[in-house]
C-alpha cells in the first residue's frame, strides 16, 4: 500500500498553505520556469522539467541585507536582519534537494551563517519526483536520482488523478495534514534512466590533473561570465559591501563567482589566480576535489543547469570524462 493524495486535495492543500506562509513554486515567466512566491495556486506550473534558476535563491538570495548599523543616543546600534515568516517550497526536484543539503556544509558549519540558518529552519521542502528528464540531467551519477526522497520533507510522485505521497520528516508531517492522505494501491511510475558520467574516483584524478595544460586549453573557449555559478544550486560564493548614508549603514551580500576576473584580486593588485585557466579550473576543482576533501561529498548534484546555460558549451560531464583520461595518462 502507498499513500495517496488526489489532485483536487493537493490543490486545496496548497491554497491553504497560502494563508499562513509564503508559498514558493515553479511559475512560467515568458519562456522560463522560475521559482516565484505565488499568491494563487493557479500560477503554479506542474508540468516542467526543471526550473531555469535553482531553488538556492530562497536560502541564499542573489542579494540580501545582513544587518544595519544605526546611530542611536550618541552611539551606534547593530540591527541584524531576521526572517520572520515560514516558507514552503513546492516542486523541488531531487537533485536540487541534494544541492541544498550540500550548501548546508559550508553555511551551517560552526559558526553557522545566521541568515542561512533561519532560511533553512523556516522552510519546508515539498519535492516532485521526475517522470521525465532532460538530456543534460546526470543526477544518478552524482549521488541522487529522479525519484530520490533524500533531503526533502515530502516527496510527491505523480500518478493518474493524483500523487503518491512520502512524508519524510516531522516538518513534512506538520505541513501536510493526515486527513488529506489516503492509503491506495497504486504503483509508482518507472524511474527514468539517465546516461552515466564517470564520477568514481574523480577527486583523485582532479588532484593529478591540477597542473595539466588541459585547463588553459579549455579556458580558450570560456568567456568568464558568471552564468554557471549563478544557475548552479551548489555554488555559494558571495561578495559583501556596505551601502552607507549619514544615519545608517546597510551591509549587503550578493552572489559572486570564482569566474569573475577580479574575484581573487587582493590589496596591492596581486591575484593568485591570474590566468583564465586557473580560474576555470577553480570551479571544477572546488566541486570535485576541495569540497569533497573538506566535507566528504562532491559539490555537483548533476542538475545539468550549467551545461544547458553555458554560452560556449563548457560541459562538466565532458570535463569529468576528460579528467578521468588525464589521470590514466599520468599513471602510465
Amino acid at each position: 500500500m502507498t499513500q495517496f493524495i488526489s489532485k483536487k486535495d493537493l490543490l486545496s492543500w496548497l491554497s491553504q498553505l497560502l494563508e499562513d506562509r509564503y508559498l514558493v513554486a515553479p511559475t512560467k515567466v515568458d519562456e522560463l520556469t522560475l521559482f516565484r512566491q505565488v499568491d494563487r495556486v493557479d500560477d503554479i506550473v506542474f508540468d516542467f522539467d526543471n526550473t531555469t534558476l535553482s531553488p538556492k535563491e530562497w536560502f541564499f538570495p542573489p542579494s540580501e541585507t545582513l544587518f544595519y548599523v544605526e546611530r542611536k543616543d550618541g552611539g551606534v546600534e547593530l540591527i541584524p536582519a531576521t526572517i520572520e515568516r515560514e516558507t514552503a517550497i513546492f516542486g523541488i526536484r531531487p537533485c536540487d534537494a541534494r544541492g541544498m543539503a550540500m550548501n548546508d556544509y559550508p553555511f551551517l558549519a560552526e559558526p553557522a551563517d545566521a541568515l542561512y540558518r533561519q532560511h533553512r529552519d523556516k522552510t519546508t521542502l515539498v519535492g516532485l519526483a521526475c517522470l521525465t528528464t532532460r538530456p543534460e540531467c546526470f543526477c544518478t551519477s552524482m549521488g541522487s536520482g529522479p525519484h530520490d526522497p533524500a533531503n526533502l520533507d515530502i516527496l510527491l510522485t505523480e500518478v493518474a488523478d493524483g500523487y503518491i505521497v512520502q512524508v519524510l520528516t516531522d516538518k513534512g508531517k506538520a505541513l501536510l495534514p493526515d486527513k488529506l492522505i489516503t492509503a491506495a494501491d497504486v504503483s509508482p511510475p518507472p524511474v527514468p534512466a539517465l546516461s552515466d558520467v564517470p564520477s568514481g574516483d574523480i577527486s583523485e584524478k582532479m588532484r593529478r590533473a591540477f597542473d595539466d595544460p588541459f585547463w588553459d586549453r579549455l579556458a580558450d573557449r570560456c568567456i568568464h561570465c558568471n552564468i554557471c555559478s549563478y544557475v548552479c544550486p551548489t555554488c555559494y560564493c558571495f561578495d559583501v559591501r556596505d551601502y552607507t548614508d549619514k544615519e545608517r549603514i546597510e551591509r549587503v551580500r550578493s552572489w559572486e563567482s570564482c569566474q569573475s576576473p577580479g574575484f581573487t584580486r587582493i590589496a596591492g593588485g596581486y591575484d593568485p589566480r591570474p590566468t583564465k585557466g586557473s580560474r576555470l579550473r577553480q570551479r571544477f576543482a572546488h566541486k570535485l576535489l576541495y569540497f569533497p576533501e573538506q566535507f566528504g561529498a562532491l559539490a555537483c548534484v548533476g542538475c545539468g543547469r550549467c551545461v544547458r546555460a553555458c554560452p560556449v558549451n563548457i560541459d562538466i560531464r565532458e570535463i569529468i570524462q576528460d579528467v578521468q583520461q588525464l589521470g590514466v595518462k599520468s599513471e602510465a
Binding site: P62, I223, C225, N226, I227
Partner: peptide, 9 residues
C-alpha cells in the same frame, strides 16, 4: 542576475 554574460560575450 548580473551574470555579465552579455558583457563578456
Amino acid at each position: 542576475i548580473r551574470c555579465y554574460a552579455c558583457r563578456q560575450v
